[in-house]
Nucleic acid binder design. Structure first.
Lengths: 200, 200
DNA sequence: CCAAACCTACGACGGCGGCCGAAGTGTTCC
DNA sequence: GGAACACTTCGGCCGCCGTCGTAGGTTTGG
């Protein structure tokens, strides 16, 4: 149940203990309402979620604390590799195909500022990404920062851009991403990051 | 990682804390050595297992207690529906496509007795099952009984047989299986079960 | 009573990944 | 040295399931 990214996103979104509508959970997971409905039915059948009808909407919440405990236990395993030589990993790493870590969170925050023109400045073609089968925008919760970073087709396109421009280079056999000197100035310029952001 | 049946079987086999060879784990999971090798590589990469070379064999064990904790937390969810009106469920239930519960465990124990002719008596065609892509025999650990019951292609064939003969009937929207009166005498005859086995 | 909003059922598509056979590498034992 | 054994890599097959478009049902609000 938790192995599917969409279902995991829905369960993670409910980890605060509150309840959300099916529509909201679909947005959280970055899928359509039809897909979300299918997933929610399975999660309820697995006794991991419960629901309550409020008029024409259905509100879902975690079925119990044991579900949350299982999710946290799995998160523990996922974030376990951090304590050691994890400073670089915590700063910038590859999360599937997009950027995660402190840099990923900072970039996402700037992207969400109203009125910014970062995507146009970077030459990201949103229309081309829209045509992809994949959801354009997805927010992925960062295990180290506990804040969202941009994922989905847009997140993948951004990381591809960073790599093409040689702002980031990936480390062999690792999720680590290293910021080049060109990258430091470019990220600072496009995303309004202070110079000492990279030297903390 | 834990969502795949083969990987889950391997991890469950290691839940006693001891270590096992790759070959042994392949047998536990009911897959070939090649497939097991692939799974074990992934589990090690995910920091869920560790290994130690002993001559020409590799012995794997759980990477730590947090892995066991996550597995137990997930098992808790899986077995949570039992406490309430769970007597029938604990006695005989459908586990995917095969029989589980006290009856499933008892049947498995009889099948493993040397010299028994139960499969031939029931008309199970082992050669036909062999040709399936699916592993013929797989042992599934019963969460309520903590003992193995037969799964895999053979387990599925057996349950199909039970249902065709109307020894077991499934309950709508539930994993519950009800033993018919014909089933009670048939199970008693073929598997040497005392009459009071069904009335305890 | 109509339009809008929310959720669901059905069907089809497509990709990911589990699976195994064959072949290769390294180790043990006689 | 040679045979048996344990594990790995490579390649290709195939089935499962996540995804969405279309369509239909239900509730809300005007």
């Amino acid at each position: 149940m938790l192995a599917d990214p969409s279902r995991a996103a829905m369960v993670l979104a409910l980890m605060d203990g509150r309840s959300r509508s099916a529509k909201k959970l679909a947005l959280d997971a970055g899928v359509t309402a039809q897909t979300a409905s299918s997933h929610l039915r399975k999660l309820v059948a697995a006794r991991m979620l419960v629901w309550e009808g409020r008029g024409r909407t259905k509100h879902f919440s975690l079925a119990g604390a044991d579900v949350a405990q299982a999710v946290e236990a799995l998160s523990e395993i996922g974030s376990r590799e951090l304590p050691g030589a994890a400073r670089e990993l915590r700063f910038a790493r590859c999360c599937y195909d997009h950027l995660a870590g402190q840099l990923g969170v900072a970039v996402t925050e700037r992207l969400l500022r109203p009125g910014n023109t970062v995507l146009r400045d970077l030459g990201i073609d949103l229309d081309a990404l829209q045509s992809s089968r994949r959801p354009l925008f997805r927010c992925c919760t960062d295990w180290t920062e506990r804040r969202p970073h941009v994922a989905g087709a847009l997140g993948a396109a951004l990381l591809r851009c960073y790599k093409d421009e040689r702002w980031l280079v990936s480390v062999q056999e690792s999720r680590k991403l290293v910021v080049t000197s060109a990258g430091k100035s470019a990220f600072g310029r496009f995303f309004d990051l202070a110079p000492d952001f990279f030297t903390q």
